[in-house]
Amino acid sequence: MAEISSMHIECIIDKDDFNAAGEASSKVKKSLNMLGIPPKTIKRIAVAMYEAEINAFIHGGGGKAVADIYPDRVEVLISDEGKGIADLDLAMQEGYSTAPEEVRMLGFGAGMGLPNIKRNSDELDIDSAPGKGTRVKMKFKLS
């Protein structure tokens, strides 16, 4: 493993570029690969972050992805200034989706994103309110 104490990655999630959505998660995945983190752990981080990044694109009107890699953990924050989540308990239920048909045409919006983020992260903190945007904070242990 490389001799570094931490790594900081920041990316804009462009609301106008669907094809680029996921690039932040890809960068983090590549960095974790280079650091020699076990593939199963990397996969959990990549899946959770990608789900959140796609959410910021489809629901949040774009936003920002920030990842900090420490020797013992990875912290990821995906934030947007979009319409926010009206009922978080409902949004956490498998199959519940507010995604319009256009989003499903793009291959997302099955109502599994947030539950899948929860399943793949060690800690999840979602801060959101209608009109106030959404901040999805995830922590993953590296051991």
Binding site: N19, A21, S25, S26, A46, V47, G107
Partner: peptide, 25 residues
Amino acid sequence: MLDTEEGSLIITGLINPQVIRTAEM
């Protein structure tokens, strides 16, 4: 994205680059 095992094959009718990104993750 739901617990698909690594090394599996994705079969899909969806045509956009997110299919490749999903595979990557």
